[in-house]
């Protein structure tokens, strides 16, 4: 699993595939204030991304992958 859900946080690691989006959407539905940790994420499928954009998620930890982080900056807000 590339996304591990804690109490109020979705922690991404490696590359999150398209199949994760369904669960992520469900989780965000239950945790509207859920935070996103992209620290260890290197890539995520756009399905995940648009779910987070739709939920207006806040990123607490930017990806250590600078390239990805720059892309995400244009789509999601970082605390």
């Amino acid at each position: 699993m590339a996304i591990v859900y804690t109490k109020n946080k979705a922690v991404f690691s490696d590359a999150a595939g398209a199949e994760e989006a369904e669960t992520l959407l469900e989780w965000l539905g239950k945790h509207p204030k859920g935070k996103i940790d992209l620290g260890a994420c290197v890539h995520l499928h756009p399905a995940n991304l648009q779910v987070m954009m739709a939920a207006g998620c806040l990123v607490t930890v930017r990806s250590s992958d600078q390239d990805l982080a720059a892309w995400i900056d244009s789509a999601l807000k970082t605390i």
Binding site: E22, L25, A47, L49, Q50, M53, A54, A55
Partner: peptide
Amino acid sequence: WGGIAAREAWPELAEMDAYNCVL
């Protein structure tokens, strides 16, 4: 440089289809 934008306004989460690409 690269950026991502939504093509349309976001629907309610409950009505959202995660696999309908709107980016």
